[in-house]
Design a protein around this nucleic acid. Structure first.
Lengths: 109, 109
DNA sequence: TGACTATATGATTATATACTCACATAATAA
DNA sequence: TTATTATGTGAGTATATAATCATATAGTCA
């Protein structure tokens, strides 16, 4: 049976995972891996309304994935933990496995 | 600007992330890291209705995170890619960073 | 001061997700 | 065959999330 302690941990982990589990937010994280950026540049890169991007950014800040700093009129966002990028290695691994399995299936037809 | 190719990749990645982004599903993945299990045992472990667990399992199968095999009356689920466990290392990293920052904040008060 | 710019947020709507209950399906054993 | 057990799925409801528009806030510069 699941302990209360583990349950709490899983809830925290789910919160972080949810904060990344959106195409736009993944695009943002990918954009930020090369360095910090302001909301305006992020919005232009991902091709969405600034208000929408601002909301997505605050979701990730609340989850602890991003952090920000104000600089004049602009707000600059950056990755808070480099290990977030490991997440993509993991997910890419799943995708590669899927592709491999599809290839096997195709070859068997 | 975001290329169509990258956009497609991010959508796929988000799908996989979403498949894990739930406390119950994280509990399931954690349970399965030590070996394959049937729905009934998974449901008992996580403390939820079998019908509900069955739905969560199928979400993860569709995303390519889990795979299953039938054995008599039972359906046995297992992790499809061991690298899924790396995900937890990543998320735990974020949580550790959060805890560290909280400690700093506390010490500064 | 007022105009301008970047960002955040309230309100609304549309959509997606999770859960429950009831029922369907399928394998097994008597 | 019937009864039993494990699993999956349709339907309904409740809740969460995403996107948009309008508006608020706050820093900058003329």
């Amino acid at each position: 049976m699941l302990t209360k302690k583990k349950q709490l941990l899983f809830e925290k982990q789910a919160e972080i995972a949810k904060a990344i589990a959106h195409p736009l937010r993944i695009a943002i994280v990918d954009f930020l891996k090369d360095g910090q950026q302001c909301v305006c540049d992020i919005a232009e890169y991902v091709g969405s309304e600034r208000s929408n991007v601002s909301r997505h950014l605050s979701v990730m800040v609340n989850a602890g994935v991003l952090e920000y700093r104000k600089e004049g009129l602009k707000v600059i966002y950056r990755l808070r933990t480099p290990c977030i990028l490991d997440f993509f290695a993991c997910v890419t691994g799943v995708l590669k496995q899927q592709a491999k399995d599809n290839q096997k299936l195709l070859a068997a037809l």
